[in-house]
């Protein structure tokens, strides 16, 4: 290799390194807390993504309190970080602190939840479309039963919460026009395993011991895992006698899928930071302003997608 090409390669490498990633940038991350396994996984993945990209991550756990988040953001501004990631605990009350960040010319990226502030106060928001998640789950069931009669029972999330409302809407959108599929019972299981099991037991009692139930749609995997136990205890085979489809893609549901006891789950990816860092890299490089909402993929996993492998990949993430 000539000296000239060597230099050119080195120069090209240098250029690609700077354009792909602003090495050594400092990003502050104000996380809500660690109230669920999913959130713990989100924190783990955000740290991993930052490390892979050579970004220094300043992490702050707000323990479910907005005032802690506001204090953390103010301290990030005072430190003069290059960007701020914010997973807001509530939707309101962010105007003034976002204004301060804007005056300091620090871009703010919202992770997985939205705020009510004007959208010029933050760079972009990364999140999942909850309605779309429900649609993916519903579409799977439509394809799976292929026109046959199917009586569905639904385990809703916490009554009135936006994931419960949106995931219900999405599923209903997907099965609309397919008269063979009918939601016969729908109750809240409060997103918990224990409630999911208890409510499923009552569904089984109410529908002749479960003989008349063709499928269960649960708004999250935890409730599905509880419901699977209820189905087993009623002497039926979950995954065969009653199809199980749910949302979130936590490790335990992959274990159930590997055992043939669950059929499908829609991933709510905890990797919100990856797309956020990509958008920030483009912004730092040449000021590219991303779309105001970056939608993460709602990927469908079935028993055919190596559930055991997925379980092994996920179990270390802190779920």
């Amino acid at each position: 290799m000539t000296r000239k090409t060597l230099m050119m390669t080195a120069a090209a490498l240098a250029v690609s390194a700077t354009s792909a990633m602003a090495e050594g940038e400092v990003v502050g991350f104000s996380q809500i807390g660690s109230e669920s396994g999913w959130r713990a996984a989100e924190t783990t993945l955000t740290r991993q993504q930052a490390e892979e990209r050579g970004i220094e991550l300043q992490f702050s756990d707000a323990q479910q309190r907005q005032e802690n988040q506001i204090a953390a953001i103010r301290s990030f501004i005072a430190q003069g970080v290059d960007a701020i990631l914010l997973a807001p605990v509530v939707a309101t009350g962010w105007d003034s602190v976002l204004q301060e960040a804007q005056e300091a010319e620090i871009p703010v990226v919202l992770l997985d939840r939205q705020v009510d502030s004007a959208d010029d106060l933050y760079l972009t928001a990364v999140g999942s479309d909850l309605v779309h998640e429900g649609e993916v789950a519903g579409q799977w069931l439509v394809d799976e039963v292929a026109g046959e009669e199917c009586r569905v029972v639904e385990l809703q999330g916490t009554t009135g919460s936006s994931p419960a409302i949106d995931r219900k809407t999405g599923f209903e959108n997907a099965i609309e026009g397919h008269d063979n599929i009918e939601i016969v019972r729908s109750q809240t299981g409060d997103f918990t395993r224990a409630q999911g099991k208890e409510v499923m037991e009552s569904f089984l009692q109410a529908e002749s011991g479960g003989q008349e139930i063709c499928a269960l749609y649960a708004h999250n995997d935890d409730m599905a895992v509880g419901a699977i136990q209820a189905v087993k205890e009623a002497g039926l085979k979950p995954g065969e006698d009653i199809l199980i489809v749910s949302i979130d893609a936590v490790p335990d549901i992959f274990q159930a899928m590997a055992a043939g006891e669950a059929n499908a789950t829609v991933e709510l990816t905890p990797n919100m930071a990856g797309p956020a860092f990509d958008a920030l890299a483009a912004y730092w490089a040449d000021g590219t302003t991303p779309e105001k909402f970056i939608q993460t993929e709602s990927k469908l996993f079935t028993q055919a997608d190596d559930p055991q492998g997925e379980y092994d990949r996920r179990k270390g993430l802190g779920y």
Binding site: D190, T192, R193, A194, Q195, V225, Q229, D252
Partner: peptide, 16 residues
């Protein structure tokens, strides 16, 4: 009883 029932300890929700 509750932990055994769901075969898992759910620190956030058990006995809430």
């Amino acid at each position: 009883v509750e932990t055994a029932d769901i075969r898992g300890a759910d620190a956030n929700n058990a006995g809430l």
